[in-house]
């Protein structure tokens, strides 16, 4: 949430798993954010033009074409966090190379996630 806008910050959540999306939406909305959930590349492409403050991208289930979308968000100066199912040095490197601020490994700890989002939006 930025201080200037009256509207709560809009967070783009990307995940192929609907239940994951629902849980993310629940947690983020409880913390006072608005969410824009997408679960496919096509939907993601459409969502890229929205007034997004931050993006959470769970790369599980996506192909290499997800990196290009990460770059586009980065180009628009939208902070993004990549979420991965496993700890991997190669993935961490790829995330950083495509503009991610950090790579988080599932399962996420809710309190830590919210802290990170808050600091990125300041």
């Amino acid at each position: 949430m930025t201080d200037e806008t009256a509207q709560p910050a809009l967070i783009l959540t990307v995940d192929v798993n609907q239940r994951n999306l629902a849980l993310l939406a629940q947690v983020l909305q409880q913390a006072g954010y608005r969410t824009l959930p997408v679960s496919t590349i096509t939907a993601l492409d459409q969502a890229l033009e929205a007034p997004i403050s931050l993006a959470l991208i769970d790369i599980s289930g996506f192909g290499a074409d997800i990196w290009q979308r990460c770059e586009r968000l980065h180009e628009r100066a939208i902070p993004l966090l990549v979420i991965s199912a496993r700890q991997s040095a190669a993935l961490r490197q790829a995330s950083a190379a495509h503009g991610a601020r950090d790579m988080l490994v599932k399962p996420l700890v809710i309190r830590e996630l919210l802290g990170l989002i808050r600091s990125l939006l300041q």
């Binding site: 995940d15 798993n17 609907q18 239940r19 994951n20 849980l23 993310l24 947690v27 769970d58 599980s60 979420i83 199912a85 599932k106 399962p107 996420l108 700890v109 809710i110």
Partner: peptide
């Protein structure tokens, strides 16, 4: 799929 999750 509907019910399983791994994000948290």
């Amino acid at each position: 799929e509907v019910e399983t999750y791994d994000i948290f």
